[in-house]
Structures are given as structure tokens and as C-alpha cells.
């Protein structure tokens, strides 16, 4: 069984926040571009426009609020870990042995 030292840095959390934010931007950009999409059937085009507007742009505060909440909670948890320990000793044992 191996024993390792894992250094606790903020890198994983920073990478996570950046990637989630970039993915959110990507989805919002696609929605923004496609909100005016035109199909040969006018009613279909209108239906799609209403759907994208209703789902994405009308719900933007909720979307950002939810993602923000998870960011804040994860950062609190990670901050707690980082201030308590700079390094974590990790063993590759499959669980803690108890009596």
C-alpha cells in the first residue's frame, strides 16, 4: 500500500470555476446566436425563439444564482481544508480499518 502527500492548493477550485464559467458562456453564446434561427416554417421558428428566450434569458438570474451558490459553498469547504492543512497524507488503503 502506498502513502502519499497531497498538497492542498487552490488550483483545482480555480480551474473548476474557470471551466464552469466558460461552459456557461459557451451555452449562453449558442443560445444568443440561435434565438433568431429561421426554419422554413414560421410557426416553428417562433416556437424555438420563445423556448430559448424563456428557458435561458428569462431565467438568467436563477441560473447565475444557482451556479454562484455552488461556487461559494465549494470555496468555503475548500478554504476550510486549505487553512487547516497545507498537506494531506493519503494512503491507498481501501477504507479505514476499524476494530
Amino acid at each position: 500500500m502506498g502513502e502519499y502527500i497531497v498538497k492542498i492548493t487552490f488550483i483545482p477550485v480555480v480551474v473548476w470555476v474557470i471551466i464552469v464559467a466558460l461552459f456557461a458562456l459557451f451555452v449562453l453564446s449558442v443560445a444568443l446566436i440561435q434565438v433568431n434561427v429561421q426554419f422554413s416554417d414560421e410557426a416553428l421558428s417562433r416556437e424555438k425563439q420563445d423556448k430559448i428566450s424563456g428557458e435561458v434569458f428569462s431565467n438568467l438570474p436563477t441560473l447565475l444564482g444557482f451556479i454562484g451558490l455552488i461556487f461559494v459553498l465549494a470555496i468555503i469547504g475548500f478554504y476550510g481544508l486549505a487553512v487547516r492543512v497545507r498537506e494531506v497524507k493519503v494512503s491507498s488503503e481501501p477504507g479505514e480499518l476499524v476494530g
Binding site: 473548476w16 471551466i19 464552469v20 464559467a21 466558460l22 461552459f23 456557461a24 451555452v27 428557458e55 435561458v56 431565467n59 436563477t62 441560473l63 444557482f66 451556479i67 455552488i70
Partner: peptide, 9 residues
């Protein structure tokens, strides 16, 4: 959409 973004991200 919010959960989709956070889970896939």
C-alpha cells in the same frame, strides 16, 4: 440548464 452547466463543467 443551471445543473447541466455545473455538472458537465
Amino acid at each position: 440548464l443551471p445543473a447541466i452547466i455545473i455538472l458537465l463543467g
